[in-house]
């Protein structure tokens, strides 16, 4: 019954903290590292609000022990923008109404980012499939799907430039 020393890599930065073994990655991000951009709606794996990228794959931070994250690369919504410049997906989400209340948004942004890393120009049905593990109560998903398509287009344009 003791705290453990934990070394993490979050958004490319090495961070160290001491945590109780029962703490999930979600709790450590929000409560120990002050990264409250990662949200939670159930803490049981049932909504997708807490999704972050672990080694590039979207996973649920509410069901990952922080202790199991050593030596893995964690990316949260705070790590998406480059400096003050929004990631193309973020910009597309903001422009196209994909974030209404914005609560599901961080989890969906990261899930979409991982999708586009594998499939740069997915079809709308592939996008729906990829975000089907993220509940959104506000949008009806349509504008989210459109924003991911638009984000993919903008990323393509950036690559071409």
């Amino acid at each position: 019954m003791r705290h453990a020393q934990l070394a993490l890599s979050v958004n490319g930065e090495a961070v160290e903290t001491s945590v109780a073994p029962y703490k999930t990655l979600l709790e450590v991000l929000r409560e120990d590292l002050g990264l409250t951009g990662t949200k939670h709606g159930c803490e049981l794996g049932e909504c997708g609000a807490c999704a972050v990228l672990i080694d590039g794959e979207p996973q649920l931070s509410c069901l990952v022990l922080a202790l199991e994250c050593e030596a893995r690369e964690i990316e949260t919504v705070e790590g998406m923008a480059r400096g003050a410049q929004l990631h193309p997906l973020q910009a597309a989400f903001a422009d196209l109404g994909a974030a209404q209340c914005g609560y599901c948004t961080p989890g969906i942004l990261l899930t979409a980012k991982a999708l586009l890393a594998r499939e740069p120009r997915p079809t709308p049905s592939r996008i729906k499939e990829a975000i089907s593990g993220n509940l959104c109560r506000c949008t009806g998903y349509q504008q989210i799907v459109e924003a991911i398509e638009e984000g993919a287009r903008r990323m393509d344009d950036e690559r071409r430039r």
Binding site: A4, Y22, T24, E43, L44, C62, L65, E68
Partner: peptide, 12 residues
């Protein structure tokens, strides 16, 4: 927040 109870963690 739903939280885990205390446990000892081993990683063989």
């Amino acid at each position: 927040m739903m939280r885990l109870p205390w446990f000892d963690y081993r990683a063989p």
